[in-house]
Amino acid sequence: MTDITVFDALPETVAAPEASRPRLLVIGTALAAMAATMGMAGLLGIYVQSRAAVLAQGEIWLPKGVTIPLTQPNMMAITLVMSMVAMAWAVSAIRHDDRANTHIALSLCVVFGFAYLAQTGFLLEIMGMPAAGDELARPPLFYALIGAHMLIMAAAMLYVIVMGLRTLGGNYNAKDVEGIYGAALFWNVAVVLYLVVWYAIYITK
């Protein structure tokens, strides 16, 4: 709170402020998550439609020399599912006013998030998808889709970090879990979006 001097100047007769309205952060997060989902759905729609059009012409979707290994995508899926468990742990911990466990669980989530980003970078490197030169313009579509999800995941990590710091500062506890709920909501949506990408791109190729 930056308005400390203002509040210090208040006369004693001033009534205490009412509690802030509940759930605003969760509602706002749900709306932001909805927007992120629509953005990904749009790109996935274009990707799937383009792939279907190419396959219908009897051509191969992936450019020559490009392979999508399954080890990394599967590991990323498992990593992110584990991060959902960690997030559930964080929510449970804050509801029991257990800040130590909350911080451990949130930190674990962020670590899982970094693992996902690092693994995606590694996957893109070993796939050998050319940045340009493909006559069907598939690489931009692929990179836009994967990049969009990486951005969403990075935003989710930032959200978790901020909420973790605010919990450290005493903003959230068993009576006010809104920030952690919000972070958990956005995180889980980001993970579910990856699972859709995982199936639509990596599994069905």
Binding site: A35, G39, L43
Partner: peptide, 11 residues
């Protein structure tokens, strides 16, 4: 709708 447009712009 706008996020879809943002996605298209990303593409």
């Amino acid at each position: 709708t706008l996020p879809i447009l943002i996605g298209e712009l990303g593409l």
